[in-house]
């Protein structure tokens, strides 16, 4: 099974609900999905929980995978949607808690990285919007091409390029990075 293409495994899952084939797909892509979500959330535990939800959603929606783009691109799209949904839920939960006066609990659940121990990358990512962060991570951490990112995020390749450019500009201006050097 380890030598099978992703598309062959997907076909097997769709036709016979083969959980072992889906397990192989998870083993192949879990690292990228977890890494993507860890960089989006800035929190390992939350990211791994979201990654689990992402794969469960992927199982439910596998019939919608057309096979035109890459499987990892499709998975990252689901991961990003799962992340946004979770963030929305968390925000709603925060608002409810706020109304009953539990502001401290809300702060504990925040997604922003504010610790002193965070690395450069976390600080760089903090200046970006969710969409910019997702696209930058897909491009630089997961190695997806602009076309694959476009398919995942349902946007034209030109828009992907301009989002990446904008993200880089934000990082450059926010951290005063001079041309061709990290300062």
């Amino acid at each position: 099974m380890t030598t099978c293409e992703d598309s062959q495994l997907v076909a097997r899952v769709v036709s016979t609900q083969d959980t072992d084939a889906f397990g192989e797909l998870i083993r192949r892509h879990q690292s990228h999905v977890r890494n993507f979500l860890r960089k989006l959330t800035g929190d390992f535990t939350t990211a791994d929980d979201l990654a689990q939800d992402c794969f469960i959603h992927a199982w439910d929606k596998l019939l919608t995978f057309s096979g035109r783009g890459s499987f990892i691109g499709w998975l990252l799209k689901i991961a990003y949607t799962t992340f946004l949904q979770s963030k929305r839920k968390s925000k709603r939960y925060g608002e409810i808690l706020d109304q009953v006066g539990h502001a401290n609990e809300v702060n504990d659940r925040s997604y922003t990285v504010e610790s002193d121990e965070v690395g450069d990358l976390d600080r760089f990512l903090a200046v970006l919007t969710d969409e910019e962060r997702a696209i930058m991570v897909m491009s630089y951490a997961c190695g997806l091409s602009h076309r694959e990112i476009g398919e995942s995020m349902a946007m034209p390749v030109g828009t992907v390029k301009s989002v990446i450019f904008r993200g880089k500009e934000k990082i450059r201006t926010s951290f005063d990075i001079k041309d061709h050097q990290h300062g």
Binding site: T19, D20, F22, G23, I26, R27, Q30, R34, D48, A51, Q52, F55, I56, W59
Partner: peptide, 9 residues
Amino acid sequence: FSTQIVRRI
């Protein structure tokens, strides 16, 4: 990680 998800499914 994958085993856990497969078990859930």
